[in-house]
């Protein structure tokens, strides 16, 4: 059932077109540009929360000015990622590197929701300080670790196919 869905994706005219033309390297290179910009902006916010960098700026300022860039980059990376996935959907779906990548991305998403719904609630109390509460530093550390894992697993996909 699921496999039939993946095969259906593969046989979409769009998927066939991407897989057979210069669209594929275009998607792949846009994926690299957007994901590096995404992690670059996430990295700055996380290092600020950890108290390692840019401590002269308030955490909420860093976050409100950089998160939109992370979000737009993540959207572009997701669209280009799906565009590549559908060209070989049924093969990619059983690729362990891609499965690990998806798992790590789910964990990163849970981390983001937790940070924005719970951890950031009392941000006004520690916004300008160098030392954020443990929960915030823990989330920032998890975020960095998870995204590095996503990059490594993502890069590994092509070495397994």
């Amino acid at each position: 059932m699921l496999n039939e869905f993946f095969l259906w994706l593969e046989y979409l005219p769009l998927a066939q077109h991407i897989g057979a033309t210069w669209w594929f390297p275009l998607m792949e290179s846009l994926h690299v540009v957007s994901m590096t910009l995404m992690l670059g902006t996430i990295l700055m916010v996380d290092l600020r929360i950890l108290g390692f960098a840019a401590n002269r700026y308030a955490i909420s300022t860093m976050s409100s000015e950089l998160v939109p860039w992370s979000a737009v980059s993540l959207t572009i990376a997701s669209v280009t990622g799906v565009a590549m996935f559908i060209t070989r959907a049924s093969t990619h779906a059983v690729n362990p590197a891609l499965q690990i990548k998806m798992l790590l991305m789910v964990l990163a998403a849970i981390n983001i929701v937790t940070v924005h719904c719970y951890v950031f609630r009392g941000v006004v109390n520690w916004d300008a300080g160098k030392v954020a509460p443990f929960s915030a530093r823990f989330s920032a550390g998890c975020s960095l670790g998870l995204w590095v894992g996503v990059f490594l697993a993502g890069r590994w996909i092509g070495h397994i196919v």
């Binding site: 690299v32 590096t36 910009l37 670059g40 990295l43 590095v148 990059f151």
Partner: peptide
């Protein structure tokens, strides 16, 4: 290759 990508992240940031 991942180190290469993470280096590009530092350039982006």
């Amino acid at each position: 290759q991942t180190v290469h990508l993470l280096s590009i992240v530092a350039i982006m940031a």
